[in-house]
Design a protein around this nucleic acid. Sequence first.
DNA 1: TTACATGTAACTATCATAGTTACAACTAGA
DNA 2: TCTAGTTGTAACTATGATAGTTACATGTAA
Lengths: 144, 144
Amino acid sequence: MSISSRFSVGIHILALIEINKNGTSTSEFLAGSVNTNPAVIRKIIGMLKGAGLVKVQPGIAGAELAKNLSDITLFDVYKAVNVVQEKELFSVHDNPNPDCPVGRNIQAAIVPVFEAAQKALEKSLGNVSVENVVDDIIKKENIS
Amino acid sequence: MSISSRFSVGIHILALIEINKNGTSTSEFLAGSVNTNPAVIRKIIGMLKGAGLVKVQPGIAGAELAKNLSDITLFDVYKAVNVVQEKELFSVHDNPNPDCPVGRNIQAAIVPVFEAAQKALEKSLGNVSVENVVDDIIKKENIS
DNA sequence: TTACATGTAACTATCATAGTTACAACTAGA
DNA sequence: TCTAGTTGTAACTATGATAGTTACATGTAA
């Protein structure tokens, strides 16, 4: 199991729009950097747009940021690209046997623990902004 | 995306072996409570055995705990049933364009953040033992 | 009107999951 | 020793998500 790379691609897109802010970030341009198909990029950009993170218009070339990057956390991107449903990072087997004490209580016993773990993950993602990622990229770029 | 229910089934199995400790926990018995196929249970028990959590022998009916339940955390079970590879909860798109500053640095910039988030998740699972889950089941059972 | 971009649908290939069946290997007891 | 019952595993199927591809309708601006 692995969380979809839509998430990392989403971050890549936002970072590149910022770094290319003096140019025009078309889906083809972005696809060239991510190394995938422009249609894939457009699908993800559509999700970012739906979450209010970018601005795009049909017929007009280029995507722009809709917010300051310091106000976009990785958690925002994660939610935007819909890689994990709320409270559903862990799946629980359904229809356990209600005639067994464990079967009839296991879900209620486990779900809160799973939710806490998911929350811990998401909180961690919320501590990092896309701006932090961009700064890191710039730093690495200047060093090498 | 969702983490395999092997995890919740693994917890279910351990809890039921404990609660049924005066009886014999065959794969068929366990399958009846989980509500699945005995072969599925045997496969998962094999993983739990590989991690040193249970004792089972070919030809001999019943699985037993190999450790005190208070010494088995949910993180131990999670590792045992192999639902998430180390450092690979998040997948990162590969082959980004090395001719682009973002393309050539995005992986190095993102991976540590992803690893930290995964660690936060796993730490949270490490705070709960299977015994805690069993206690919760017993408590719920007595109340209702 | 033309050239070019976005938005989206339809389709494919690939992979993991979960379940199913079948059977070899093994144990204990009659 | 034979038999019944159990574990361990392999092979197969169905399902669903992912990621990519192609194609085209829609929209904009020069």
